[in-house]
Design a protein around this nucleic acid. Sequence first.
DNA 1: ATTATTGGTGTGATCTCTACACTATTACCA
DNA 2: TGGTAATAGTGTAGAGATCACACCAATAAT
Lengths: 235, 235
Amino acid sequence: MTKYSKQSRFLIAVDCIVFGFDGETLKLLLIKRSFNPEKDKWSLMGGFVQATESLDQAANRILKQLTGLEGVYLEQMYSFGETNRDPIERTISVSYFALVDIHKYEKQISTDFHAEWVPLKRIPKLIFDHQEMVELAKKSIRYKAALHPILFELLPSRFTLPQLQNLYESVFNTSIDKRNFSKRVLATGLLIKLTDKDKAGSKRGAYYYQLNMQKYYANFQAFINIIPNPDSLQN
Amino acid sequence: MTKYSKQSRFLIAVDCIVFGFDGETLKLLLIKRSFNPEKDKWSLMGGFVQATESLDQAANRILKQLTGLEGVYLEQMYSFGETNRDPIERTISVSYFALVDIHKYEKQISTDFHAEWVPLKRIPKLIFDHQEMVELAKKSIRYKAALHPILFELLPSRFTLPQLQNLYESVFNTSIDKRNFSKRVLATGLLIKLTDKDKAGSKRGAYYYQLNMQKYYANFQAFINIIPNPDSLQN
DNA sequence: ATTATTGGTGTGATCTCTACACTATTACCA
DNA sequence: TGGTAATAGTGTAGAGATCACACCAATAAT
């Protein structure tokens, strides 16, 4: 058997861009790096791929180790391979983005781990090319959310239309007419109206909805049409 | 300075799925592998990333070395990292897809190199997980072409509407009303009608068109709408 | 001159999208 | 306890987009 003996071998990292939504603001989960180089600088959730695990497994493991998060929406985004992106040793990074219901994990994350939710508008300087990864992730989530119902992954299992609209408006940095928004959203057939209301956000209270999981999984790759004038998505 | 001394290092490959269109049929460029393992089996265009080059540079170099192709549309698609995907030694593969005007390169490829254009419908068994890469590439090109004008990259600089329609019908495996097709395509404003005709395909002859490169580059990320009922894209 | 072949064009019906404004509910406070 | 402030919820009409559909035009070959 031949070996590929003459070829170079490289470190492979996985970096995760973790999005969360608290009902008000889109946030990213960042961490203070615990090892050199760039110790104590802000960083995405990252780590090296081990010999025994696939890329997806590595992404899930790293997310779990650094934050306790498990079973969340996680999707491979892009691989970064500039030769000098890590100053110590050449490392290829396979980036993933994750969408998380922020409430499910909020306490857990800040107590057990040293990760923090930071508003997307106030991301500090990050190590290496993580800034670039964040920019791409913002673009990717917008692009995908304009076509597919991924944003539900950011919400609790019961949510109101105003919350949902708020989320869409945050992601697309726009404002949407609520009459048209509700028509579009309900037309997808993805939502089930519940009988009780969320009284927290208003005096009148807003009806809770939940996803029709059947349809959600069945239609995940079909196009939806929630954003008006999707042509003009600004990057 | 710390080193990442305890971590595993891996081979990184780049594999390119190269699409071409001869006016009739969508094809992939395949190659008979010239080295072990799996020597003489059909394979995508692939090679190892060198220490001195980025992923994009590696993809371009490999394409050039194996086929002579240069300056073609090339886009990173996905990274494959199952631990056993290469039986000799663990290798992470970063896949790219390329879109090529087949006529520009047809002779060059078959004489100088040992690559061959194979109709997409008749792809032979491929090594490793290359089959899976091809499937993903088919999906990706369809997905992207439903939204963006990438398919022009497969055509010569002067082309006719029937040729273009034929290409769309091949990619989406559907048939489109030609009146509606021409309206949609012309409505994009991307095409410039020329004064001469292609007499090869018919007695009457069909007008040549060329891309308005200004608008093409300016609107590349905007959504276009050429496929009727894009919802029902089958994977 | 006839025929066969492919290219090119327009309209009306239906559906979708958009813009737009008022009433309902209730917590809170005077 | 009545009033007020704040948010939730709903319908319609005009414009625009999409779709289905059929005929004439050009010309090479016979």
